[in-house]
Write a protein that binds this DNA or RNA. Structure first.
Lengths: 237, 237
DNA sequence: GCTCGTATGATTGTATACAATTATACGAGC
DNA sequence: GCTCGTATAATTGTATACAATCATACGAGC
């Protein structure tokens, strides 16, 4: 297996720096810090009970992750995401999820296939019951399985990265009760295409799945999520 | 314009940390440090005449860039690139360069179009003269123009990122005198498709351009570049 | 001879001190 | 009243000191 990643995970969750990094990332993604808000090393450090050193190192990483922008000798600012950024990400993801589905068709293991089938069946159950949270969880997991099944560290990393960015939008929105079941229908299609070893179909369906998710998001008011807290929006993809 | 980038540039080239970062990156890309070689904070710091602090911060960034891997409490190691990694990157790039060409067709400015035309014509000249270095330079520039023309910070950044990684392979290889002119022929095709506003064609040609570059690289012995210094290989894309 | 535990040195992780830069406030001059 | 320059405070950038962790060597015990 490759030890090369286009972007490495921050593996060290237990060092002070790692904890600062993960906590800051969560806080930014969850919207605790507003866009363009300035993050001060000392303030963050005091809040987390550490010195500036690990905070600074975490900042450098967050900058490369694109969550903050550091202006030399000035400060660190939470970056904003525009509507166009979100659209671009979905368009790129559409292509890459398709590629991922294609590769997954060729490389998926028996265990992964079974987990994927189980995921779809379980999601169907929760969809009927109206369990939105479980549905969102299974939705995320479905894509993670797909990413792992494609057997490409590079692609897996890219997609997980994008997925994370979209979470930033999603956190500001509510799950859409209508999209959930429809999304799972599409998952089923992708799953069956992979099971029957139809790579072309799997790719097309995965492409389509992303486009649909984006369209649904726009239809439900992507342009409103900036500023409003409770606007319904796309599904969790 | 968006102020959001999936991965930020390290803008600060003049701070000590910025200098360490860029120099280390160049050194790794140029092969000064072998794969899996351990980088020690103190040694690097002494070599560059700075303390450990900026070195550590540069390390954190290089880790996210994927050039080194940091194992907590152990050390920083130069990451290796496998053949499969290179293949995956080219396949992903093929899709994304296609998307980029499609978007560029819709968003390219007059100035960018002119620079692209000039690039192709100039490259033709140098191809006839056998000026391989200029050809490689123009090749890089062609893709940069394309990235800028697509008018998507997100995609531009992704592609520049991948491009950089491939440089790491390319540095170990020599330009292939046969591929250069053929590559430029393909550039011309893409350029003309964009000029005539045929987005579909531009996308297909850009897809193909990447695949060809990869195929050529494999044909010329991608598997040999690990360890050998002088094996001829693919073009500079 | 082999295994394991301990001691020592090397290296990374963090905190702090100091330097350099930037932002702000205030008052002189017009 | 406005502009500009200077002084002060706040903040970031870097160096250094100390703590924690890891690698290695060596020797006791079997």
């Amino acid at each position: 297996m490759s030890d090369f990643d286009v972007r490495q995970e921050v593996s060290d969750k237990y060092s002070l720096r790692g904890r600062v990094f993960h906590r800051l990332r969560d806080d930014i993604l969850s919207g605790k810090y507003a866009e363009h808000e300035e993050l001060k090393e000392m303030a963050i450090g005091e809040e987390m009970g550490v010195s500036r050193t690990p905070v600074r190192e975490a900042f450098r990483q967050l900058e490369l992750e694109g969550l903050i922008q550091i202006i030399p000798n000035k400060g660190a600012y939470v970056t904003g995401i525009t509507e166009k950024d979100v659209k671009d990400i979905y368009m790129i993801r559409s292509l890459l999820e398709g590629l991922c589905a294609r590769w997954a068709t060729e490389h998926i293991t028996k265990e992964q296939m079974e987990e994927m089938e189980e995921n779809v069946y379980l999601a169907e159950f929760h969809a009927q019951k109206g369990h939105l949270e479980q549905l969102a969880e299974l939705d995320n997991r479905f894509h993670d399985i797909l990413y792992e099944a494609c057997d490409s560290k590079i692609l897996e990393h890219q997609l997980k990265d994008f997925h994370q960015y979209v979470l930033r939008v999603r956190k500001k929105t509510l799950a859409n009760a209508n999209r959930g079941p429809k999304s799972n229908e599409e998952h089923r299609g992708i799953m069956e295409a992979i099971r029957s070893r139809d790579a072309e179909l799997a790719e097309r369906l995965a492409n389509r799945h992303m486009i649909n998710a984006y369209d649904n998001m726009v239809k439900n008011g992507l342009h409103e999520i900036y500023g409003r807290e409770e606007s319904p929006s796309g599904d969790s993809v």
